[in-house]
């Protein structure tokens, strides 16, 4: 049964109250390392959003028209990953052609998007919650935007943190994680925005 979710509510929920990173812990690896630099964060955020939306749509189509009818649901992990890897590969080539400068700055991070848990995570959530096509697009777009918002905010905070007197043991990943914890708490504050459908 496709859940009865208003797409607008779903969009806001996936950006704010159920942020793919701050509430669902997905997409952290590259998050922590990239968020040191604002420009790469922005670029990566955009790339992740685009990849998320495209792959979610493709995966939904494959799921509904190939995997389910042919009783191949158990292969979904492999199919989803292949779709994601292929999309990233193609996106890499497109970026390289359209804007070599962006390609240079994103560098190694593009292939990393393939193993970004958020992308596979969104596909898996979409499948397990039985979303419709519209819900899938909205969910993926919202998750991407939420991730982007989180990484840019973290980059901005990190810029200030660099100058702060942080104890040696806490420097780097330690303080970053605690900062993310505070951000997660702040985002919980958005819960009042939505009511049970």
């Amino acid at each position: 049964m496709v859940p009865d979710l208003n797409p607008v509510v779903l969009l806001f929920a996936s950006i704010f109250t159920s942020n793919i990173l701050l509430a669902n812990f997905l997409g952290m690896c590259s998050f922590i390392s990239i968020s040191k630099d604002m420009k790469s964060s922005n670029g990566l955020g955009l790339a992740v959003t685009v990849v998320l939306t495209l792959t979610a749509m493709l995966n939904w189509v494959l799921l509904q028209y190939v995997l389910i009818p042919l009783d191949l649901l158990y292969l979904r992990y492999i199919i989803f990953i292949i779709v994601i890897a292929a999309t990233v590969q193609i996106l890499e080539m497109v970026i390289d052609r359209v804007s070599p400068a962006l390609y240079m700055s994103l560098g190694i991070f593009l292939p990393l998007i393939t193993v970004n848990c958020a992308i596979l995570g969104v596909a898996l959530f979409m499948q397990i919650r039985n979303y419709s096509f519209v819900q899938t697009v909205v969910f993926a777009l919202g998750s991407g935007l939420g991730w982007w918002l989180a990484i840019v905010t973290l980059a901005a905070i990190q810029k200030k943190l660099v100058k702060a007197p942080v104890p040696a043991g806490l420097k780097g990943p330690g303080i970053t994680l605690i900062t993310i914890g505070f951000m997660a708490m702040a985002f919980i504050g958005f819960s009042g925005m939505l009511r049970v459908q």
């Binding site: 701050l22 509430a23 669902n24 812990f25 104890p167 040696a168 043991g169 806490l170 990943p173 330690g174 303080i175 970053t176 994680l177 605690i178 993310i180 914890g181 505070f182 997660a184 708490m185 919980i188």
Partner: peptide, 18 residues
Amino acid sequence: MAPSAFFLLGTFIWVAKT
């Protein structure tokens, strides 16, 4: 809820690194 996992992990890293 989610934030505690981040705080605890951050603290863990702090202790281990120190």
